[in-house]
Amino acid sequence: MRVLAFLLLLPTLAFAQGFAGLGTATQEGFATPERGATLTFPTDHAAHPDYRIEWWYLTANMTDPDGATYGAQWTLFRSALAPGEGEGWASPQIWMGHAALTTADRHFVAETFARGGIGQAGVTAQPFAAWIDDWQIAGPDLTEVTVRARGDGFAYTLDLATSAPFVAQGDGGYSVKSGAGQASYYYSQPFYDLTGMIEIDGVSTPVTGQAWLDREWSSQPLAETQDGWDWFSIHFASGEKLMAFRLRDNSGAPFHSGTWIEADGTPHPLDGDTLSFTELERVQTSGPQVPIAWRVQIAQRGLDITTRPLNPDAWMDTLFPYWEGPIHVEGSHDGIGYLEMTGYE
């Protein structure tokens, strides 16, 4: 583990750009996203080793038969020391996995690392499989998969299914992350129906709910002055969805972006000027103070909502720490979802 942790530190800036909010220059030789490129499925479900960073990011909002609510997270990150795949220990690919299970009063977190090229972690497009050690998302394709993970005190096995289309974020999957034009390729599947089992301290409980998968890859998604993001994925009771984020900038105003997704999967990109995020409350977590209550407004959609967490202390005490947990939504629209906040100290 110490060796793997040391290897992972080599591309620290690459991982940090992706979800901890630390920008850096693009390393020579890596591919960069281009506007107008077409996402191709199932090919793009697999890894893109010529890009510097990439992730498969699943969040789930769940309820048990007694009405108690839970959240689950399963994430596989890939970071590259150099472009290309390579064979065996010569592979330049580094993998990191995060799994979490959240209740109203407990937050379980697990983290694991792997080196590419030796079969310990990887992704195949069809049949679909993403894995690191014994954690996996696998199925015939990404419309029907089983998700498994475990850590100290918790485990889950979740079956996901959907017939909905994948949703391209931004301009046909080209997602701009700053006024200077840094961008990533980004698409989602926010329409999974979920059934499964969670386990806490050896006690198993059946759950049902909704899940959201994000897929993203790039080589320089953030500007050097951007120091973190606040990202929302929301399932509204109407069947509509919202993805929205702000990237904080230590030299000026934050950068906003989002997508309003109709119940039939039709995406409507949101201009940054139409999005408003207001912090309502900060709390001291087991890490830093973070803003766990928010007001989100989109005037053109008649949206004026307040989001609050299931568990305010959903702090991910991982190599690159961040806050990630389930939220509930009230106001002009009711719903549930997830909030991720990075770069807080």
Rank of each mutant, 00 (worst) to 15 (best):
V329K: 09
A125H: 08
A25F: 13
D273E: 15
Y322S: 03
M1P: 04
D227K: 05
W56H: 05
L142S: 11
D44R: 10
F236C: 08
A68Y: 10
H45W: 15
A68H: 14
T205Y: 07
W294H: 10
P49E: 08
S332W: 12
G335K: 04
R115E: 08
Q297E: 15
I261R: 02
A16T: 09
G331F: 07
Y57V: 00
F19Q: 00
L303E: 09
A138M: 15
L142W: 09
E281L: 13
R246K: 14
V109F: 08
M341I: 14
Q126N: 12
G287L: 09
F191G: 03
A80K: 06
P291T: 06
P33L: 08
S163Y: 03
A46I: 08
G202L: 07
W217S: 04
E28D: 15
H98K: 01
Q289I: 02
S163Q: 15
H48Y: 04
M197N: 14
T342R: 00
L8Y: 10
E54S: 01
Y192V: 04
S286I: 00
G86E: 06
Y322A: 06
R282G: 01
P127Y: 13
V207M: 09
A138T: 15
H235W: 10
D159H: 15
G258M: 03
P33S: 06
I327G: 04
T32M: 13
L242Q: 06
T38W: 09
L4I: 02
W260E: 06
L58Q: 06
R148V: 14
W212M: 03
P165Q: 10
L303Q: 08
G325F: 01
A180I: 10
A180V: 09
E34W: 14
A168Q: 12
P127G: 13
G302Y: 11
L142E: 12
H48V: 04
F19G: 02
H328P: 00
G29V: 05
D171A: 12
T103V: 03
Y51W: 07
Q73T: 12
Y185P: 01
E224S: 14
G97E: 03
A293K: 15
Y156R: 05
V123Y: 12
E85W: 03
Q27S: 13
P254H: 09
T205A: 10
D64Q: 09
G36V: 13
I118C: 08
L303C: 07
V145E: 08
R2S: 11
A110G: 13
F320P: 01
V109W: 00
L7I: 01
D141P: 04
A155Q: 10
T102C: 11
P127M: 14
T32P: 00
Q136H: 15
